[in-house]
Nucleic acid binder design. Structure first.
Length: 439
RNA sequence: GGAGAAGUACCCAAGUGGUGAAGGGGACGGUUUGCUAAACCGUUAGCAGGGGCAACUCUGGCGAGGGUUCAAAUCCCUCCUUCUCCGCCA
């Protein structure tokens, strides 16, 4: 099977099911592998007997032309072959069913939390450090929606007219600021020798599977309907990527990389498209949660023994970007249940949004370990052993603009309603220092 | 979107139903050599999955998935990709 591996190592489940159960319990899952292991044994026994039959078939079918050549009668052998053939066919069908059962079960399991990741949900997230301080205002600070409408740089009404709720239009200095942010991010990643990628935004099903978004989270994304897609296996053929991570992790799907190529460091800019079904909250008015937002994603394919270090690098890069903008933020280590299914360890960088009196995620840096690599069959050839091993994949936003933009608006607002542009962005905005109301 | 052709290893490529998938190039190893080259000999079908403590062995892989057959790279169906031509178009 080139594509469609399991998310968890089946050998690990066989060898130490208790360990796997314990790790999954941290995510609030109660999984008993007893039945699974019994079925697995049954499946393997059946494979063995069936392959014995196939070996016999191969041998016998070599004899047939020989018999014919010698002018002998092969009827008896042909009859036996027919019998074997029927049995093989029946067994193969059964094996396929057992495989399917096993896949359905294992594919539904999330990644095992890394050592040191605490159990439980959001309430167990730990803030591990903060940067800067909450700004103090000697005037009544405004909500970013009021600021951008006052300045005329983000147009929610027309966004809704064009596409519905949770869509907006950047205009004028707003569009320039948005683009400046992206340029600032890109410049930093280029300086660190990450390869820039502009991937297609429409991806096929396998991409979502490898990333770990499918089959469980199909509802969270926008799927495209083309003429005959309803007849396709999953009801659609392509979807709009919810993050460029989905594209980047699939770049080397079903490939065997040279060890010397690792780590591979990429970054990509794409909009992110999310259906955000049922997730609207009144306190998230504005551009905190939209159907489309801009994000630069950084990504690494790493050697297993180097992936912890790679995660540190990604976190440091994301933090550096927020620091460069002069924004107050904190870094949280997520508890097991708050990590997405594919990830074994995740750190969120959360920027201060004064109007919400809360910190909101601007970057999520995660190590997927070999989870995505297993699903996508992404391997490297170990130079010492000559064997193929799964790579580790890591990703971090670097950064998403949709919360950075509001944070700049709110943290940098002035008494007169103008907003100071962070210095690092000014070179990308013709030196403009302040955003003033536009006519 | 329409018509045609093709997809076999690192590359080129033979193979239209019958045991282990030709051949060449390249690469790697060896012999020879003062060194290099040449010549000669050898290795080079990935990968996945079973069984076995192991040596080893078996099964499936000829773009992917199905089907026909005792037997499929070879015949049939669906899909994907590439190339050529036509149409349309930013």
């Amino acid at each position: 099977m080139i594509f469609g591996g399991n998310m968890l190592d089946i050998n690990l489940i066989r060898k130490d099911p208790e360990f796997v159960s314990e790790k999954l319990a941290l995510r609030g899952l109660e999984i008993d592998f007893t039945e699974f292991l019994a079925n697995d044994q049954k499946r393997r026994d059946l494979i063995y007997t069936t392959e014995q039959l196939k070996a016999e078939r191969n041998k016998s079918s070599a004899k047939i032309p020989q018999l014919k050549k010698e002018g002998k009668n092969a009827d008896e052998l042909l009859a036996r072959m027919r019998e074997i053939g029927d049995e093989i066919k029946a067994n193969d069908q059964l094996i396929a069913e057992l495989n399917q059962q096993q896949d359905d079960f294992v594919v539904g399991l999330p990644n095992l939390p890394a050592d040191g990741v605490v159990g439980g949900g959001k309430e167990n997230n730990q803030v591990i450090r903060t940067y800067g301080e909450k700004p103090k205002f000697d005037f009544e600070p405004m909500h970013h929606v009021d600021i951008v409408e006052h300045l005329g740089i983000v147009d929610y009404a027309r966004g809704a007219k064009l596409s519905g709720a949770a869509n907006w239009v950047y205009r004028g200095m707003g569009a320039q600021l948005e683009w400046a942010l992206l340029n600032y991010f890109i410049q930093d990643h280029l300086a660190d020798n990450y390869e820039m990628i502009l991937p297609p935004h429409l991806l096929n099903y396998e991409c979502g599977y490898t990333a770990g978004q499918f089959p469980k989270f199909v509802d969270d994304i926008f799927t495209l309907r083309a003429k005959d897609d309803s007849e396709s296996e999953h009801g659609f053929k392509r979807f709009l990527l919810p993050t460029s991570e989905t594209a980047l992790v699939n770049l080397h799907r079903a490939e065997i990389l040279n060890q010397s190529e690792l780590p591979k460091k990429y970054f990509a800019y794409t909009p992110c498209y999310r259906s955000e079904a049922g997730s609207y909250r009144a306190d998230e008015r504005g551009m905190i949660r939209g159907h489309q937002f801009n994000k630069v994603e950084i990504f690494q394919y790493a050697l297993p023994e180097e992936s912890d270090q790679a995660l540190e690098e990604l976190i440091a890069k994301a933090e550096k970007l927020v620091q460069g903008l002069g924004l107050h933020y904190q870094v949280s280590k997520l508890a097991a249940e708050d990590c997405s299914a594919s990830m074994r360890e995740t750190y969120d960088i959360e920027v201060w949004i004064p109007s919400m009196n809360d910190y909101k995620e601007v970057s999520s840096a995660s190590n997927a370990g070999d989870y995505q690599a297993r699903r996508g069959a992404i391997r490297f050839k170990n130079e010492e052993t000559g064997k193929n091993e799964f790579v580790h994949t890591l990703n971090a936003s670097g950064l998403a603009t949709s919360r950075i933009f509001p944070a700049i608006m709110e943290q940098n607002q002035q008494a007169d309603g103008t907003v100071i542009i962070p210095e690092v962005l000014r070179p990308f905005m013709n030196g403009t220092e302040v955003i003033e109301p536009q006519q």
